[in-house]
Amino acid sequence: MEADLPQIAIGKPSFSFDQQGGGNGFAIQISGDSTEILNDLAIDIARSLETVEGLKDVISDGDSGNKEIRVNIDRVRAANVGLSAQAIAQSVSIAMRGENLREFRDRSGEIAIRLAFRENDKQSIEQLADLPLYTPEGRRITLGTVASLHVGRSPDSIRRTDRQTAVILSANLENDVSIDDVRPRVKSLMDQMQLPPGYSWKEGRGFERQDDTADMMATNIILGIACIFLVMAALFESLILPFSIILGSIVFSIFGVFLLFAATGTTFSFMAMIGIMILIGVVVNNGIVLVDHINNLRQEGVSRDAAIVTAGRDRLRPILMTVATTIVGLLPLAIGTTQVGGDGPPYYPMARAIIGGLAFSTVVSLLVVPALYVYFDSLAAWGRKVMRTARQGRVRALES
């Protein structure tokens, strides 16, 4: 859209994208007591943010309001002539907005009467400064003698955070630049700026929600792994053997996610965390199929090492076929730009997380899971031997 816009000599158009909707948005919040000071700070900070590499179209919501004329009454001068701020404000209100008077009645009915300045008498700030005011003694003065007038902008809305007024500075990101790339640059710049006492800055609410969401997803992943552990412990009738799959499949799958993200330059996002949650439930299937077949062969009398070799040979083709079909099915989503709801976060981080973790963990787990199985099975056998020796020693002690 920006590429097709014609050149405008008097300005540069910009577009604002919703950060939470998956767009290229970045925002910071400045808080303090005075709206005027916040607006002045926002102008200086916006000018500084324009110099940050990767940011463009920096705007402040304090400048988004309409223009207004602000009348600052000098209360000392007004008191000297016998006028109150309320009386002056009432005169200004009548001049600008008018005032309804009592209806005029005649034979034809009632006629509404409204007292107001003519439109051509309220076109400039100079005309407002010449507004006549009358003192209690009947002396005529002008508004400019007891008040100062200047043009400013009124905010569309007043934001408050923790009982303080806040101003939001938002910006768009350059192409091929992520929020994580810009975030440390902005933090470094803002840490160097000296804000007045009582004024502070922080990243926008989108970042707070993003951090809260990341913490929640990390908790969900841990709970998911715990549930998977309980299922595998019940299946294998062991509290030790499930660790061979958790360490051999899940850990290496997460490592594979970051490996593929680094190779493709994909930014780790909320959708990537959803992909990891899905991945955890998928990669354990390969380990469960392998370890369960090893246990079945051992129950038939096959030695442990022979059972591992036989199970690896028997389950190699099904595991590779399952992984290959999953990866091929996710490839269109991984290389496409489809977004949730059309304008939400893209799907490809989730698809790439599943593909990278599944591919890497499959290759590694075919070697690591059997090795860990041997280790934990030997550890379990040693534990059983220790317990058996301890029981025999206790029995001998009781007999003697």
Rank of each mutant, 00 (worst) to 15 (best):
N24Q: 13
I88V: 12
P136D: 02
S188R: 11
T338H: 12
L247T: 07
G301D: 03
T135I: 04
L247R: 03
L241T: 03
T135Q: 04
G23C: 04
G393A: 14
M277V: 10
G287H: 02
A390D: 12
V340G: 07
A89H: 05
Q20S: 11
R394M: 10
N286D: 09
I45P: 00
V340L: 11
G204D: 07
N172E: 12
Q90P: 06
L83I: 02
S14Y: 12
R352S: 05
L331K: 05
F15L: 15
V92D: 00
V291Y: 01
T142C: 08
C227G: 09
V364Y: 02
Q20E: 15
A3F: 10
N296L: 13
T51N: 10
T161A: 14
G329Q: 00
P197L: 11
G204E: 01
T161Q: 14
E126P: 04
G312K: 00
I335G: 03
P332T: 04
N120H: 14
V386R: 14
L239S: 15
R139G: 09
E203A: 14
Q20F: 13
G356T: 02
Q392W: 13
L83G: 02
N24I: 13
W201K: 00
I240V: 12
G138I: 05
V364A: 07
G25D: 04
T264A: 08
A381F: 09
A46R: 07
W382N: 14
E137I: 10
I221K: 02
T35H: 15
P349F: 06
R160H: 12
F236V: 03
I240C: 03
S124A: 09
F258T: 02
A380G: 10
S34E: 10
G275Y: 00
G341I: 03
D377K: 08
A380T: 09
L372S: 01
I125T: 13
Q86P: 05
V328N: 06
L189M: 07
E399I: 11
G393F: 09
E53Q: 12
R107W: 07
L128W: 00
A334F: 00
V251W: 04
A234I: 08
G383D: 03
S361Q: 05
D162F: 07
S365A: 14
G344A: 06
L149Q: 03
L101A: 11
I111K: 15
N39R: 13
T213E: 15
Q123G: 12
G393N: 10
Q194K: 10
D106Q: 02
G152M: 13
N220E: 11
G23W: 03
G11K: 08
T165M: 09
P345S: 11
R394S: 14
L398Q: 08
N295K: 10
A89C: 03
F26M: 06
I45C: 05
E2R: 15
A79R: 11
D74L: 06
V52A: 05
L115W: 04
S93G: 10
E36V: 14
A112M: 14
G11P: 04
N175G: 15
K56N: 12
G98T: 07
L49Y: 02
F360W: 03
P196V: 10
